[in-house]
Amino acid sequence: MSVLSPVDARKPRDPRDPREPRKGAAGRPRRRSRAAGAGGQFHGGRIAYLILAVVTAVSVFPLVWTAVAASRDNTRLAESPPPFWFGSNLPRNLEIAWHDANLGLAFLNTLVVAGSIALGTVLFGTLAGFAFAKLRFRFRTALLLLTIGTMMVPPQLSVVPLFMAIAELQWTNRLPAVVLPTLVSAFGVFFMRQYLVRALPGELVEAARVDGANSLRVVWHVVFPVARPAMAVLGMLTFVMAWNDFFWPIIALTQQNPTVQVALTGLGRGYIPDQSVIMAGALLGTLPLLLVLAVFGRQIVGGIMQGAVKG
């Protein structure tokens, strides 16, 4: 079997894979003593389900009520008690919100922005993460420390010069103004490094090299296959973050060429005769990510939990 085959590049199954206890819940004999955590051995009682029901209700209620408010009109929302059930205005409000907040363009823009940022973060993060994890070069430690140090630089810190820069470049209202500053992230580099340090056996890289593969081929055939799960998690987290990013976009963009968050902010501040329309906009702006969550919920949960344990 060739050493370049991605098959043996797979790391051994992680014993701490968070999905494992769930699969093992049917009473399959445990192979390892550390397979499940604390309560995993006990079934949850009624109180556990009660607590979870309350938490679920609290998590979902504001979203449901957004839809309720979006289906009413201003007059009904100004009454007491507030409405608890759906009215008939939803299609009308959605249409007004869609049109007034420029949401069609906003969705397209956000998809481009969040997609570019996620891809850039993952790609460059994996490359740099691999170098930091497995290659030796001068200043490696210093550069890594620099990277880690900048993880906590607040975005507020770069706003003023970035603003001056886009003023000079005449980039106000253009998408690169919001894509480029967040195209890479120190966190992405760090995340990938942490993953690859453990998941990528050094021998594999060496073997590929001995086979005559140059660095690009190593990255392509060895690193990427191994890194794929982490790349997926990082991509997803980055996408959600970029979709919801707020501080810089509302400075750099305007209602004429908005992202979803900018459009929603504009709707909140805009001349709208009806608050139910604002809620309709909030609903529309949230729906895509909620749909993604509904479809890929299991994978996303798994990704977040895996990410949590790995680092």
């Binding site: 363009l105 570019s116 891809l119 850039g120 005449q170 998408l175 894509v179 990427f224 060429n257």
Partner: peptide, 25 residues
């Protein structure tokens, strides 16, 4: 797949860079 990913990234960036201010409207 990787080529597709790279192409998408490139396209997205180009689209992003080409998109002119206020151009949408």
């Amino acid at each position: 797949m990787a080529a597709a990913v790279a192409a998408t990234l490139g396209a997205a960036l180009v689209a992003g860079c080409a998109d002119d201010g206020g151009g949408g409207a």
